[in-house]
Amino acid sequence: MNLLGGMMMMLAEGAGAARAPQEFSPLRPLLFQILEFGAIMSILGMMLCLYRMVRGPHLADRVLSGDTISWQVVGLVILLTVRMESTIYLDAALVVAIIGFASTLAFAQYIGNPRRQANP
């Protein structure tokens, strides 16, 4: 029980928790440039998904592109975690992933319902 409480305390450490200062690494600026590049590519991917959401001939295409946008947001939040070296952003990533999954399941139930009206 004490071990569980200790693990909970360690998991709950927030942004204010004092982290050990990172050692110097010559690749750190390259990593940060790659993170900015990744943010740009993720936003471009979201725009491509928005194009499919507007164009999509079937409702399943739109739901699928919305699901992919939610996963891109998860990736973007993880990139923010790496950039800020903080702990609390991954909670947001997990919440966005769960909400996207639940909404995909709900839309799948809606699409597969035989009493639904004709194709919008």
């Binding site: 990172q22 050692e23 110097f24 690494s25 010559p26 690749l27 750190r28 390259l30 990593l31 790659i34 993170l35 590049f37 990744g38 590519m41 993720s42 471009l44 991917g45 979201m46 491509l48 998904c49 194009y51 499919r52 699928l64 592109s65 992919t68 996963w71 891109q72 990736g75 993880i78 990139l79 790496v82």
Partner: peptide, 27 residues
């Protein structure tokens, strides 16, 4: 720290590649 950064750069590049390729495939 350098080894960790090399691994981090490699996995970040892989993740960014697959993210963008998935979006291109959707279009």
């Amino acid at each position: 720290a350098t080894v960790n950064d090399i691994l981090s750069i490699f996995f970040a590049l892989c993740g960014i590649f697959f993210m963008f390729v998935g979006a291109v495939g959707i279009v």
